[in-house]
Design a protein around this nucleic acid. Structure first.
Lengths: 340, 340
DNA sequence: AACTTGATCTGAATCGATTCAGAGACATTT
DNA sequence: AAATGTCTCTGAATCGATTCAGATCAAGTT
């Protein structure tokens, strides 16, 4: 109700609306005297800019949409956090949407963001959203793929080389003497899951000697699914168990640990080694501190947001792929010599 | 550029803009014939409503702001998730802001949300934001406090009884035979931290026999700070160590566990028992499965959002306090009989 | 004195959806 | 036949910030 508009401010300060707007948006073109008067009026009236009107006329928004694949995963929270830090520097707010691998939710949020005419969209996609994003682009809304390489280069992306991460993880297992490895993860329509497996396969095939690599499929990348997969593994006769597990992410790995160590009384890493992916902050606090492939999560978020803003400011810009390399972090779950 | 407006749709469908708007907002007042024509035109032109214009004219927004105290804490992510689920049912998007116990960031987000003229604000406050929220309310933006009781009842709130949770936790420790208890947490300008301590004190004083309760202060509620506090404790001579730790939240508790079990080779719970607060999903997967005070996190988020929308739709509504009771979840870290 | 130039300010037009007073067509009632 | 009511539609006015062509004025130039 107390809708103080720019007109009220103008009147109170004894200047025109144009001048008030200039004070707000291009103070360089206004005399010091006017700036002072307008600012005093703003102060006295408690005026706050109406972003809807601003957006309508000027066309530019101060909001960025972020569609996240799995909001319960600390990894994505770290990414969001990085993006948020960068955004707040530019006085930009983040519209947040968690899809939980649901195509309908993914569409819902993209629709919502389009109505909101956000400045741009960050998305860790689940479904194939290329056509949808192409349409957003036509309306002047750029998009950057997060944690997902844009194979055809149509969009900018910021990701981690999951294939090479998968290879490094399994190479590490092989180097420490493991020969019967199980890859635990799923569903396989998530690209990170298939990429990490592809890397794992490459490592197993290039070992120079036979290395078993079986796949234990899960329906989700959650702790609970990790526990379930772990239980299935310990129910097998001892001889048929793998001697190492490579989990598609740390949530799965933590679930596996819990099943093996706490319930199955299996020695990790002596009997079965475990390595995860992401290096979330809970990895070090696990039943047995967890080896993992570290992703620079905060940096991914910051870079993605920066890339997005550059594209938003320069429509001519061409897509750019940023790929970080993951880093092997060895803890006790693969190396008995480590105390932690 | 391809700015298809309601006017284009009207022309394409051979009706007036008013009719198009009615099809969109009150289809009951329009003939079936017109609805069909307009919908076809919308389809053919790929029209998407401009939310800025809608907001400007109609005054109502489809966005809700959520200011979160600690975005890295899985507990808050679960709360956000609950709110999001409820929001997406109403076609509402969430503007997300993480303050990390920073007064400046808290202000920044409230300013941003005010400019955006959000439908309402959910906030787990750090600073005393009552005056700020009061002002938002005057502008027609209601607020609901999340995970924080509104002592003076000026605002609606959805919270968990931290005092009673603290009491239950320490009562449990006393019942299982502990007499030298340390409360680990901080900083003490976070209300949850002081409330849980107050409950712990009450339990210690009402025991009917002497129970030691010391305070080990941390600067943050993080795993790292938990590790640091744990390290300080195990450096003490054995006789001066407490026999139980009550952590202000699970992140601290996980850090303590890591320091005691993994580094200090201390038996948990035999030598020192540990209980946390929140029951985040990682609590069960810890070095020793962690006892904790469970908060109904998803329910908190859903309830908060529902309360907020009710207030937004009925300006006459009076503030309402919803308080959930936490629930004791006993796992191995306080009970040696449990296998998990 | 006449003319430029530059700095500053003004205020109407504009963005696109919503709203609402009023018009038109038709059926029903008096 | 006139009056009343119902249903449906129309289109100008409106929300508030931005933009921009033009006005004003003091200072500098010829």
């Amino acid at each position: 109700m107390a809708a103080t508009s720019i007109r009220d401010v103008a009147q109170h300060a004894g200047v025109s609306v144009g001048t008030v707007s200039n004070v707000l948006n291009r103070p360089g073109e206004v005399s010091a005297e006017s700036i002072a008067r307008v600012n005093r009026a703003i102060e006295e009236l408690g005026y706050v800019r109406n972003d809807a009107a601003r957006k309508l006329r000027a066309g530019t928004s101060t909001t960025v949409g972020f569609v996240v694949l799995d909001g319960q995963n600390p990894f994505f929270n770290d990414v969001v956090r990085g993006a948020e830090d960068e955004a707040s520097k530019h006085n930009i707010a983040i519209l947040y949407g968690n899809t939980d691998q649901d195509v309908a939710r993914e569409r819902l949020y993209l629709d919502l963001f389009e109505e909101q005419q956000v400045r741009g969209v960050l998305i860790s996609p689940y479904d194939d959203v290329h056509t949808r994003l192409e349409r957003l682009r036509q309306r002047g809304i750029p998009a950057v793929l997060v944690d997902r390489f844009s194979g055809d280069g149509r969009f900018s992306s910021v990701s981690v080389d999951s294939v090479s991460g998968g290879r490094m993880a399994v190479e590490h297992l092989i180097e420490t003497g493991r020969r019967r490895i199980a890859y635990v993860g799923g569903p396989f329509d998530i690209h990170q899951v298939t990429d990490r497996l592809a890397g794992a396969r490459a490592a197993a095939e290039n070992a120079g000697f036979p290395v078993d690599l079986e796949v234990v499929a899960t329906t989700e990348l959650t702790v609970a699914e990790g526990v379930a997969a772990g239980t299935r593994i310990i129910e097998r006769p001892r001889a048929q168990r793998p001697d190492a597990l490579f989990a598609a992410n740390d949530l799965i790995a933590l679930g596996l640990l819990q099943a093996l160590v706490v319930e199955g009384r299996i020695l990790v890493p002596e009997e079965i080694a475990i390595i995860g992916f992401d290096d979330i902050s809970f990895a070090g606090a696990a039943a047995v501190p967890l080896s993992s492939m570290r992703q620079p999560s905060g940096m991914i978020g910051r870079t993605a947001l920066r890339t997005l803003l550059e594209e938003a400011n320069d429509p001519e810009s061409i897509p750019r792929q940023t790929v970080f390399q993951p880093e092997l972090v060895v803890r006790r779950s693969t190396d008995p010599k480590k105390t932690r």
